[in-house]
Design a protein around this nucleic acid. Structure first.
Lengths: 189, 189
DNA sequence: ATCCCAACCGGAGAGCTTCTCCGGTTGAGG
DNA sequence: CCTCAACCGGAGAAGCTCTCCGGTTGGGAT
């Protein structure tokens, strides 16, 4: 890749990150290109779809979440580890004003972005390890499936962004989920 | 209202109902007008906002849900009554491919459609009666608030529409909510 | 039965969006 | 230094929401 091309790519990523954080899925790709100082054609050549752009932005975040999940596997309380991690997932999904939640909520369709599907799978695998440990210890009901749990967490993250004025909504809704009865911070009975 | 005006209004409503059922929030208002055989101006004069159109369409459904809620207050099992009603809410919210869930998910902002806010309040009041009964009987934890519960149900309805191929997702996610442990149909232990 | 005007209609169009195409420009290897 | 593949970005097609306004018409009054 030519130097100027990489330069443009990074400027687009920076502009997109800011735009998504502010406007979420409603961000205009045109304006992102404009803010990055490139033409629309350049943006679309680097990132043919919204999903591709999104994956490029959240790639690092996904890795961080997986890392955090591995760390939490060593946590003494398996239930609290799961809760803490799911809350981190929800918080990350909320960071882009619902865009991430909307795109990552359900397992992607077969024809969808391969990179997006990979992100999804990495998150799922990390969650599965945490859930299985909690279930083995009997801390969480055994009939819960990780895919459903993640979908629900993403749904909660999405809806929390619909009411941006209620900053505690996310936590209250998470507390309504089976197996997450107490919020991570207040545990320590 | 002139006869031709009412005629047009009803044709628009019919077209909109069909379009929303098929495309949800992505339905084009232009195409709805075209399908109804009227110009865009006519559509926007009758229904200035998407919310107004939506309220006109779901008004009857909201009344039916409230009616159903009142009936269920006489149900022997207060917990099952609540579960059955919330499932009905979710199913209705799903009927328009996520559009209803997206608009009704959270209590509307002060500047929003008054009619939409009224719909929201009627649903909330009905749910509050069902929830309070279940809580009085100790069938559902007392720390649950009806507004949060409804928001969560709407979030579930929304996310279920994101994966239209998984028809049992809605029920599985509802079963993940505290106080809705068993699905309504399978209760009857 | 006719008239009249308020109410209503719908198309034109402004301003936004996403996404594509292609002629001009430029980085970097020979 | 020269060349050309790779890259750039603007023009523009197509579609969207929503507004404005001149022409039409329903139906009450005469």
């Amino acid at each position: 890749m030519r130097a100027d091309a990489r330069d443009n790519r990074e400027r687009v990523l920076r502009a997109a990150r800011a735009a998504f954080a502010e406007h979420g899925a409603q961000a205009s790709l045109n304006k992102i290109a404009q803010a990055a100082g490139v033409g629309p054609g350049t943006l679309y050549r680097h990132f043919p779809t919204l999903g591709a752009l999104l994956v490029a932005i959240i790639g690092d975040d996904v890795a961080a979440l997986c890392e955090k999940g591995r760390d939490l596997l060593g946590h003494t309380s398996s239930a609290e580890a799961l809760r803490t991690w799911l809350r981190a997932v929800a918080e990350h999904a909320t960071a882009m004003r619902g865009l991430v939640a909307a795109r990552m909520a359900v397992p992607p369709a077969p024809d969808a972005d391969a990179a997006l599907a990979a992100c999804h799978e990495r998150i799922r695998a990390t969650g599965a390890a945490l859930l299985e440990r909690a279930q083995r210890e009997g801390a969480v009901p055994g009939d819960i499936e990780i895919a459903d749990l993640l979908t629900l967490v993403n749904a909660i993250a999405w809806v929390s962004e619909q009411a941006p004025c209620d900053e505690y909504l996310l936590d209250r809704l998470l507390a309504l989920v089976r197996g997450m009865e107490s919020s991570p911070r207040e545990e320590k009975t």
